[in-house]
């Protein structure tokens, strides 16, 4: 386990006591990433330790989540072939195919 970067708090350690939920799996650029039902795509990526996933057009710089509430469009991904989906707004569905190189 890494000790740096974003992380999801395990339910057992969580003072908020989240209820039980089902696991989901999405495929991101060909690799499977596991998450929890009800998470956004950005939430699944961050919980897996990913801080960035997009590259900017002009300077080729990495981007991930910035505003977290659907305003900045930094977090765009392609979901099941549909481009320009805000990862922080779209809830992940089991089996979603996400690609980050659009």
């Amino acid at each position: 386990m890494t000790t740096t970067g974003p992380a999801r708090l395990e339910a057992a350690d969580d003072p908020v006591s989240p209820g039980p939920t089902s696991e989901i799996a999405i495929v991101v650029d060909g690799s499977e990433i596991r998450g929890l039902a009800g998470q956004t795509i950005a939430g699944v990526l961050l919980a897996a330790g990913r801080q960035s996933w997009r590259t900017t057009a002009r300077q080729g710089r990495p981007r991930g989540v910035f505003c977290g509430i659907g305003v900045c469009f930094d977090c765009l991904v392609t979901v099941n072939g549909l481009r320009d989906v805000r990862a922080c707004q779209r809830h992940a569905a089991d089996g979603d195919e996400v690609s980050t190189d659009a």
Partner: peptide, 15 residues
């Protein structure tokens, strides 16, 4: 963003 991810995902944006 940190607040939103903490509250609705229980994800901390960093350690």
């Amino acid at each position: 963003a940190a607040q939103a991810l903490a509250k609705s995902e229980r994800v901390a944006v960093g350690r």
